[in-house]
Simulated assay, not measured.
Amino acid sequence: MEIEFTIVGDPVGQGRPRFARRRGYVQTYDPPKSREYKARIAQSFQRAYMGDPLSKPIRLTIKAFFAIPRSYSKSRTRACLEGIEKPTKKPDFDNIAKGVCDALNGLAYQDDKQIVQANVYKAYGPEAKVVVSIEEIEQ
């Protein structure tokens, strides 16, 4: 079984955890930007799949497409669309993957320990979006 869905908008990486002292204890929490992005990921996934979480090993593919800056020349824009120029800017590929994996925990799969293979791509595209593909692997 394969599930594919798209998150429209700029890719957002998982932010550093924040700490707060409450009632004598230190608590950690996600930064607001990461929390909002995880909610968008969950909504996009739930539009594509309404079943129970997958229970077999998972292959995950994440393709992060960044919008081409308007300041780029026509030749540089063409190079971006042809895949010659790659986005070597933030967020890092591992932070993109971490945010997606955490957001899908309990929705797409029971736990992210089921992910046995993952591919993350960063590229420029005509519009900013993240395309996620989740595939069950037969044991």
Rank of each mutant, 00 (worst) to 15 (best):
N95W: 10
V8W: 03
F65N: 00
Y37K: 05
D92L: 10
G15C: 05
V100L: 00
R70V: 10
D112P: 05
V116F: 01
E4W: 00
D10C: 03
A48K: 11
E2S: 11
R21G: 11
I115K: 00
K56Q: 14
Q110Y: 07
D10G: 01
T88Y: 12
P126S: 04
Q117W: 09
D30L: 06
I3M: 11
A123R: 13
V131N: 07
A97M: 13
D94T: 12
R70L: 09
E82L: 13
Y25H: 13
R16V: 02
G13P: 03
P57Q: 04
V120Y: 15
G24H: 11
A103Y: 05
R23T: 11
C80R: 08
G9R: 04
R18I: 00
I7Y: 12
K122E: 01
R21C: 12
S133G: 10
A39H: 10
V131P: 01
V12F: 07
Y72M: 07
K56T: 15
Q117T: 07
F66L: 02
K38N: 09
K56D: 13
V116E: 02
K113E: 11
R70T: 09
F93L: 03
I137P: 00
L60M: 14
E136L: 13
P32A: 15
V26L: 11
R21K: 15
V26Q: 10
G83F: 04
D102L: 13
K90F: 12
N95Q: 13
I96Q: 06
G15K: 09
R18S: 08
R76A: 06
Q43F: 03
R16I: 01
Y25N: 11
V131T: 14
Y72T: 00
K63S: 05
R21F: 14
V131E: 15
P17E: 03
T61I: 10
E82S: 12
E136S: 14
I7N: 09
T77I: 04
D92N: 09
E136A: 14
V12Q: 07
I115C: 02
P53H: 05
D30N: 08
R70Y: 07
Q14G: 02
K122I: 01
S34A: 03
Y37S: 04
D111K: 07
D112Y: 11
K56I: 06
D10V: 06
E127P: 00
F93W: 14
F19G: 04
P53A: 09
A128K: 04
F5G: 15
S44C: 03
Y124D: 00
R18P: 02
G125D: 07
A123S: 10
L60C: 05
V120R: 02
G125L: 02
R76H: 11
K86S: 06
R78A: 15
A20D: 11
Y109F: 14
G13W: 03
A42N: 05
M1A: 12
K86H: 10
N105I: 01
R35W: 09
K98V: 02
A108G: 09
R70F: 08
S71G: 08
G13M: 02
G99T: 12
F19H: 15
I68N: 06
A79Q: 15
A103N: 08
M1S: 11
T61S: 08
P32I: 07
I62G: 01
A108D: 01
